[in-house]
Amino acid sequence: MATDISQIIEPYRGQRKGIIPVLQAVQEEDGYISIEAVKAMSKVLGVSENDIYGVATFYSQFKFEKPGDHIVRVCLGTACHVRGGAELLDVIERDLDAKAGETTEDGKFTLERVACMGCCAVAPVLVVDDEIYGKMSPGKAKEQIKKWREVA
C-alpha cells in the first residue's frame, strides 16, 4: 500500500465526498485498491469500509488485484464494434492467452474491455497504458503485441 496515503486522505477527513478522489489517487499510486487502503480510508473518512468497498466496486475504473505491467484496453464502443471490435478482442485474447479481465501468466499484460475511448472516428481502437492506437485490425494488433513483448 502506498506509504503516503495519509497525505491523500487527510484533506477529506470526515467527508465521504472524498471517497472517489482518494480511491483514484490510491489506484494511481498502487495500480489497484487493496483491503489495507480501504481500511485506512474508513478510519479517516468516517465511512464504513464495506460502504467504501461498495462504492469502489460500482465503478469500472477500480481494480482489486495487482495488474500486469501493462494494461491493454480494447475499445468496444459502437463504432469500434461495428468496425470489427469483437473480432479484434478475440484475436488479442488468443494471442495473449488471457481473457478480458485477466492478466497474462507472465504478469506482463492485463487485458481489459473498455466501453468507449471517445476516438470513434479512428475505430477500432486499442489503448496500451496511455498510448492510443487507432485504425487497428487483427493483423496490426498481432504485430503490435509482438513489438510490446520485445520491449516489455
Binding site: V47, S48, N50, D51, Y53, G54, T57, F58, Y59
Partner: peptide, 10 residues
C-alpha cells in the same frame, strides 16, 4: 450506525 454490510458490485 455500523455499516457492516453494503451493496457491492454493479
Amino acid at each position: 450506525g455500523v455499516g457492516a454490510i453494503a451493496t457491492v458490485h454493479r
